[in-house]
Amino acid sequence: MFSPADLQLITSLGIFLGLIFFAALIVLVSDWRVGLYALTAHYASAAFLLLQITQPSAALIRVISGGLAALILYLTARQTRARNDNLFISGFAFRLFALAFVIVSIVGIASSMTFLNLTPPILFGGLFLIAMGALIAILSREILRLGVGILVFTSGFCILETATESSLLMYGLLNVADLLLALVIAHLAKIAREDEWTGARRGEWQ
């Protein structure tokens, strides 16, 4: 039989594997749909991590706000006829190497240091998402993919912030900020491709 500590370990391991898998999909797969589905799924994994430090209702809010942010980006991508080429500034091999480097670095950091008295699972989850968000944003050539990186970054920070600050106001504001960020990213993406997609609506570009 498993002890409660074992169950906790297995649960944390499952959450980490989920986070790593979804983050890897965003970094490695050059398909905007896969990227947005992975972003939505990563919010569910992050909510499971949040369950360790907050109420289920608060964790659910994270999933809802994240889902709405992903929906805003999805609708924008559809409207602007987002393409799957030129999403990243580097090739697959480099992105794979960078992903592995980030995972190893964060495992090393989270297992060897303490920060603000956070438990190792929370510290790893938060730092991993922050690092992955920064990596996605740096490697992106396209505004929507950079936006996905920013949202992953804020997702990681939200975990650290919720673990260190019990203020419900700050937690709520961070969720609202995610929606505002998604709106601004959608706005920028729309303007950047306006000539193309207005032309496409008129039937000038296929």
């Binding site: 920013i150 970054f153 505002l180």
Partner: peptide, 24 residues
Amino acid sequence: LIALVLLASPQRAGRVGGAAQFLL
């Protein structure tokens, strides 16, 4: 600052412009 970015006009598609970088 994020709200101010709504005023930006990225110059062309296919690259991350200064406004998106500023968001990051």
